[in-house]
């Protein structure tokens, strides 16, 4: 088991540079502090398709509902509303 790795507050100051990432391969630039869930909406994509085939997007915005889950840098089922966009991030919806 790895040693706990404390995280410091992510910088959300307006002076920080914009963040460039891709959503389904399409380049997108967002303000620092933008969540992956918001980036997916900005890209005009839906986060996921439900088991009966409905498009779904975020509901709770706070990590509870799992409707915003996407694949981030190859890791599936990340809750987009709980992950901040980072430079070079590869976000995939399903």
């Amino acid at each position: 088991m790895p040693e706990p790795a404390p995280t410091r507050i992510a910088s959300t100051s307006a002076s920080a540079p914009p963040v460039a990432l891709t959503v389904n391969g399409v380049p997108l630039t967002v303000a620092p502090g933008t969540t992956v869930a918001a980036a997916v909406c900005i890209a005009g994509a839906h986060a996921r398709t439900s088991v009966s085939g409905e498009p779904r997007g975020p509901l709770c915005g706070m990590g509870i509902c799992f409707e915003c889950r996407v694949t981030v840098d190859g890791t599936p089922h990340r809750r987009g509303c709980q992950v901040l966009c980072a430079p070079g991030m590869d976000v995939r919806t399903s």
Partner: peptide, 18 residues
Amino acid sequence: LPNVLGAGGLDAMVRGGL
């Protein structure tokens, strides 16, 4: 449907850059 969110849910999304 996408874009039906919680009240706090939409608020959090907007705080998160939507």
